[in-house]
Design a protein around this nucleic acid. Sequence first.
DNA 1: ATACAGTCTGACACCGGTGTCATAATGTCG
DNA 2: CGACATTATGACACCGGTGTCAGACTGTAT
Lengths: 339, 339
Amino acid sequence: MKGKATSFDIAHYAGVSQSTVSRALRNSPLVNEETRRRVHEIAKKLNYKVDKNASNLRTQQSSTLALLLFEDPTEDESQINPFFLSMLGSITRACAKEGYDLLVSFQSTSSDWHADYEDSHRADGLILLGYGDYIDYQSKLQTLLDNHTKFVCWGATVDNRPDLTVSCDNYGGGVLAAKHLIDMVRTDCAFIGDASDHSPEFFARFKGFRDTLKAKGIEVSDRKMANAISTEDSGYHATRSLIANNVKFNALFAASDLIAIGAIKALQEAGVRVPHDVHVVGFDNIAAAGYVSPSLTTVQQNTTLAGQMLVDNLLTLIRGEAVTSTLLPPKLIIRQSSR
Amino acid sequence: MKGKATSFDIAHYAGVSQSTVSRALRNSPLVNEETRRRVHEIAKKLNYKVDKNASNLRTQQSSTLALLLFEDPTEDESQINPFFLSMLGSITRACAKEGYDLLVSFQSTSSDWHADYEDSHRADGLILLGYGDYIDYQSKLQTLLDNHTKFVCWGATVDNRPDLTVSCDNYGGGVLAAKHLIDMVRTDCAFIGDASDHSPEFFARFKGFRDTLKAKGIEVSDRKMANAISTEDSGYHATRSLIANNVKFNALFAASDLIAIGAIKALQEAGVRVPHDVHVVGFDNIAAAGYVSPSLTTVQQNTTLAGQMLVDNLLTLIRGEAVTSTLLPPKLIIRQSSR
DNA sequence: ATACAGTCTGACACCGGTGTCATAATGTCG
DNA sequence: CGACATTATGACACCGGTGTCAGACTGTAT
């Protein structure tokens, strides 16, 4: 036997037609039980596997989803945002559970992601994962919509299509962080992240935080805010600039754990004690949050559930059914950095 | 225009045959420059993308690699070994660089991984990633060999086929760890990992470690060894059992960083100071190694290079050429846990 | 015996490309 | 002008399955 066995080979050995083999292997009720058993047996002996390309071509679907990861570029390309990695894990498992394969692809935020995975029938739908909105992000999403490409987004919203987004309740997370600091009587708060709508997720976290303090009559002044993207380095430098500007605060809310970790490092280097002098709260609950010293209080996003919802919603869309906007509840994890 | 455009649609608009369209799109030198331009233009306008299934079916290859991740089962399924995640990142990037797609799949170690990705023409080759050897691992690899499936392994060896393995020089890494502890005059060493050939990678690390100490006339007694799989929890409990047995040591070598992190926790809980009382050295250099307190001295595996080599070697095999066994040099990263 | 429903199977078109072969059109040279 | 190489194109089989349709066969009611 040269090359791989085909359904014709099985047909030959079983003494039936290829059509019958195809039906038997898919357990069609049309075939006789005895025939079905014989075909399965021979298939197993020949180590036969259905050719996915032929099958997909005929049925016009691929049983495959594509995960497109958009990342802020970092100096060290091999380091991936741990939060996304965690999502990747849960998405992979969710796909497996639903019997779908997963194609993974990193997209440089600058590059022209043609997102041709679905057009080329490599995948039935796309999962878009990444912070914020990049150059042309919305217009590219619009192209996807125009092409009737099925996709769901994590975090970032799609104009007029809230149903395509699965996201953590970032605003609610910001509220949790603020309430916790109010409980701890630490209301002279700084914020590090991106308080513009350039990065919608970070902005929502900030708004929830700010609004909650405001309700208590406390303002977060512009002086106490610094921009950062979600890397340790960026958080470190943003915090240093606050310190250099002689900004005073007794609590700090970071838009992500990586930022918070960088912030703690900058604070400690400046001789500021955490949590004694400054309470720090992060966002995401990445693994490292439990390892840093002091361990980091943070707002947890349930990545397991998130991955499951992304896959579920996408599959629903692919089936042509409607989905509703999905907002996942955040949860405060209190650790040493704020007590 | 309902549905997606096909090459026939383009042929129609361009006033040429479908054959010519196919050739033009692949920039065959056979087609006239002017025709080629017109076809490309129309294709772009129609948002045409080659149907991968049709193309793959005809050419009998998929431009896709499959990554199969084997993990020791943990209680929290969503947490993936960070070292593997790091590998995943570098493999993804390496694939993209070579113009290949990547299918990612988690395999429960217990489940029957038919590894049918290649048989079903979903992927041209497999990358196997996981510690150690599981039930039937070698026999399953043998099945792959029998089926002429192209694959490469990380770490674990394949009987009689060293060329199919890309791996860190685990033995050399163990040597580095031992030499470092000798330099620090901490030679009363414990080892936590798996000092049996059940887990070949861990065993090699141990051998390099043990042999180096032995050359200095120092024995690592069985009493000072405890088994653990690569989780923080497992490292924690293994260390507690050493402490409970009243085993004395002033240095500890852990077969992985996760084990080391669990070990440090157990030591600290028992009132043992790290590094003052016990020096700790890990293996992998996962991100958390830099975050824990004290930060962890460890043997770094170059995951970027490893991912690249895995992909390169696999592609070489797919081209039908020979590859040689690949061993990557480890590097010692000295941090606070050993000084 | 005839009609008819139910069960099972084979023939065949089809999915959308790719590769081969034949051939038309044009140019070149003796 | 005929022989021949060169260039550009179309026709067509093919990859390996899936879905439709027709029909053979069996059993049961009329």
